[in-house]
Structures are given as structure tokens and as C-alpha cells.
């Protein structure tokens, strides 16, 4: 069973070690999958069953919740999926371009105020959104951008997600400087160095940014609630939350069904994305 694919120089590991490793990974994995399994099962249960039952046997259920949830609002649920996708795609493109530019400047270029700007950038993510959302709303409403996707997408093109700038800075600083200095000596400008040396080398960071931007935008709720007024503009997270109301009846069955539906795209993005994460190594020297 020690069919090692890696370098021959490595000591062959005994079957036992591999077995234990797998056992641990699987055991912890069960803990990790429980919530999704439970959600899947809840989605096909009738209301009473959701709360009284923490087990995983799908009793008393059918797929009516899906049909009901899909059509429970003004628009079929696909509308919200499309809206969320548009916002997420815009955010991804914006973050990839603007954050990698800013990160390159912070990590590699010398300029006056570098440290101060970097500190300011970090400061911008330290203030809770709840106290800046009102002034921000006022600004966007005066630009007549309320009830459009612009307030959710345009900031990403302006590198307001300092998280990703910082992430990319750390990755660029991990790339040996000789590589881009060599390119500079060969006569490449800063732009070409960024585009053809730095970007390919920081592929794991770009993939990470893509995955996170997608998932976080998809799950983000507060700013989407505030900026999207018309139900035809609602995203999945906003549409889902409108199904649950503490003061009256909540549509739990449809909520779970549609939660599962809205999780599918994020899961697929993660599945596909993490594959590129693995491939990133090929460019940095091979396995």
C-alpha cells in the first residue's frame, strides 16, 4: 500500500501510520459534515420535524419544501441566485485587480508614506461597519446608487477590502526578490513585472482571494439588506432572511430547502477553486 507518488528519497511510511492518519481525518471530517447533512435532511422534513429532531433520518418529508421555497417570493429563487452571482463576480474581478495592484506597491516599491499608508489601510478595517454604514449610505444615495449593485461592487474595484491587500502583501514578500529584480534588469517596466512575474507567482493568493470574495459576498447580508430596496434586486442572503420573522410565522421548511440551494454554488466554487490552489505549486517549483 505504500505506493508513494512523492520523491523516492522519502522513507516509506508504514501502513499503520497512514491508517491512523486517515482515521483521524475521517473522524474529524464527520464532525465537520454534520451541519450540512443535518441541513439537507431538515430541508426535506416537515416543520415539526426540524426542531424536534437532531438526528439525520429524513422522516415525514418530501421535496415540497423546495418547490414552495423556490416560488415563495415575488420572483423565482433563480432570480436571487443570479443577483448574488452578479454581485459576487463583480466583487471578485474588482478585488483581484485592485488589491493585487495595491499589494505590489506596498510589498515591492519604495515611496514616501509607505508605512503610514499601510497603517491607514489596516485602520480602515478596524471600525465596525455599523457606524460607517449610515454615512456611506448617504454618499451612495446622493450618487443615486441606492437600489443598484454599484455600492456593493464599486468599492471592491477601489481596494477597500484591506484584508486581501494585506494577504497579497504577505504572499509577495514570500516571493524571492531576485525573480522580479531579474525581470527589471532585463528591461521590464513595473507594470510588466507585476503582470508577468508577480501575478503568476502569487497564484495561490489570487485563488484564495477569489474563493473568499465569492463566499463572503455570497453570505454577506447587512450591506445588501441596506442597499437593495426593490425585491427584484434582492440577493439570496436577503431573500432567505425575509423568510424568517420572529414576530409571526416563519417558513422554516422552505428556508432550509433554499439554504441548501444557495449553498450549492459556494460549495462548487470551493471545490473547483481548491483544485487550483493545489496546482499553484507547479509554478513555484513542482511537487
Amino acid at each position: 500500500m505504500t505506493t508513494e507518488t512523492t520523491t523516492a528519497a522519502r522513507r516509506p511510511r508504514p501502513f499503520l501510520v497512514q491508517g491512523v492518519k486517515h482515521a483521524v481525518v475521517i473522524a474529524v471530517g464527520v464532525l465537520m459534515t454534520y451541519p450540512l447533512a443535518w441541513m439537507l435532511v431538515s430541508a426535506v422534513r416537515d416543520e415539526g420535524g426540524i426542531f424536534s429532531n437532531a438526528g439525520l433520518l429524513p422522516i415525514g418529508g418530501d421535496f415540497a419544501n423546495f418547490a414552495e421555497g423556490w416560488d415563495s417570493s415575488d420572483f423565482p429563487f433563480s432570480r436571487y441566485l443570479v443577483n448574488s452571482s452578479l454581485v459576487a463576480l463583480g466583487a471578485i474581478v474588482g478585488n483581484l485587480v485592485s488589491c493585487s495592484m495595491a499589494a505590489y506597491a506596498f510589498a515591492r516599491l519604495r515611496f514616501r508614506g509607505r508605512r503610514a499608508f499601510f497603517a491607514i489601510m489596516l485602520l480602515t478595517i478596524m471600525l465596525p461597519i455599523h457606524v460607517v454604514i449610515v454615512p456611506q449610505y448617504v454618499i451612495f444615495s446622493q450618487m443615486d446608487w441606492v437600489n443598484t449593485f454599484w455600492p456593493l461592487v464599486v468599492p471592491k474595484f477601489l481596494a477597500t477590502d484591506a484584508f486581501f491587500v494585506f494577504l497579497m502583501v504577505q504572499f509577495i514578500r514570500g516571493i524571492p526578490r531576485e525573480l522580479d529584480e531579474a525581470a527589471r534588469i532585463d528591461g521590464a517596466g513595473f507594470f510588466r513585472t507585476w503582470a508577468s512575474i508577480i501575478l503568476p507567482l502569487m497564484r495561490p493568493a489570487l485563488v484564495t482571494t477569489t474563493i473568499f470574495t465569492f463566499i463572503w459576498t455570497w453570505n454577506d447580508f447587512f450591506s445588501q439588506l441596506i442597499y437593495l430596496a426593490d425585491p427584484s434586486m434582492y440577493t439570496t442572503s436577503v431573500a432567505l432572511r425575509s423568510l424568517v420573522d420572529s414576530t409571526s410565522a416563519s417558513a422554516w421548511g422552505p428556508l432550509f430547502a433554499m439554504s441548501v440551494v444557495s449553498l450549492l454554488p459556494v460549495f462548487i466554487v470551493f471545490l473547483v477553486g481548491q483544485r487550483y490552489l493545489v496546482q499553484g505549486i507547479a509554478t513555484t517549483g513542482g511537487k
Partner: peptide, 14 residues
């Protein structure tokens, strides 16, 4: 426009 009770007030205040 519609939301659940709790969310409604955040939006209306803003």
C-alpha cells in the same frame, strides 16, 4: 420593500 421585523428597522433607520 419587505424584510423580517429585526432587519426592517436597521434598513428603515438608515
Amino acid at each position: 420593500q419587505y424584510s423580517a421585523f429585526a432587519d426592517y428597522w436597521d434598513k428603515l433607520a438608515t
